[in-house]
Design a protein around this nucleic acid. Structure first.
Lengths: 153, 153
DNA sequence: ACATAATAGTTACATTTGAAACTAATTCAG
DNA sequence: CTGAATTAGTTTCAAATGTAACTATTATGT
């Protein structure tokens, strides 16, 4: 009885497939707003979070978009330099610095959102309405399960 | 009639969801082999490709694992320094440098493959056999469609 | 009240990554 | 044959990222 070494078929290996798919989609989307607006992926995500939920502190943004506070801090620095985001200081708790889009940032945000939604809907053309739901459900469950595995392996 | 600005609900936005899921899964897997074996994600992918298809040149590896030649070159440099991969020169075409795992590299490869497969199967516990197939089919179609969109938008 | 710990955010350093320039070998057009 | 174009791979320089240390402020325990 031989302990034959297994081969790993990368192109059928789920973690690999997810990674390649997500990267392709993310880059395609980035193409839409990087050239005209000069935003990085993280900068755009910060703007999207603030577009919906402002005011948020940097930490709160990080929680929403799953990004550590250093990354948020840097993205915000870039956005503030371009006057797309403004920062106040919470007078109740002066460690907190609530962020919001400026008028200029809001304008840009409102231009990019339709581009992003259009890309998503083009992407979804590959699937039927039912399949879209299925995919989202499966992704949710995978994500929840992956989180469990991560915390107690 | 108002042109109301749409909001982007990041947590329901497919590109974002795919990105977050893929990142979580990829990091979880990396945790399994990074500490004991000291490999980066790209290094491990190169080893996996060579484990199955050697000999391959750096360019061929790049095609298989969707990685540009600079990244492959750097991963290979690191792997060669540790004698996990060896490189020859094709005498027919001296630009080509076929790569393969060394015995040491093969041993490490054969240890890591079961870890990776075990993680994948744990991940798959979240889904039924049928759902796994469904997910894979949907991912395939999304990927193919995203590629189309990228090349002629 | 006061020392300790926790929280918010930035900065500094090292490592990774990406884009473009570069070397070397081969192919191809005339 | 020979000069231009391709192909394989590496190197270089700048930008992005991660980790850890740092400042400032607030909360907590005794």
């Amino acid at each position: 009885m031989s302990t034959k070494a297994q081969a790993l078929e990368l192109e059928k290996f789920l973690p690999y497939r997810l990674s390649v798919l997500a990267q392709l989609v993310s880059e395609s989307l980035h193409d839409l707003y990087s050239e005209p607006y000069g935003l990085s992926v993280t900068q755009w995500r910060v703007m999207a979070a603030l577009g919906r939920f402002a005011p948020l502190t940097a930490s709160e943004v990080g929680l929403r978009i799953v990004m550590d506070k250093v990354a948020v801090s840097r993205a915000v620095a870039g956005l503030m330099k371009r006057s797309l985001v403004e920062r106040a200081t919470d007078q109740e708790d002066r460690r907190r610095e609530p962020l919001r889009l400026t008028a200029k940032g809001r304008t840009m945000h409102d231009e990019i959102v339709p581009l992003a939604l259009k890309y998503e809907s083009e992407l979804y053309q590959a699937l039927s309405a039912e399949e879209r739901q299925t995919l989202n459900g499966l992704c949710d469950r995978l994500f929840a399960h992956a989180k469990l595995l991560r915390n107690r392996p």
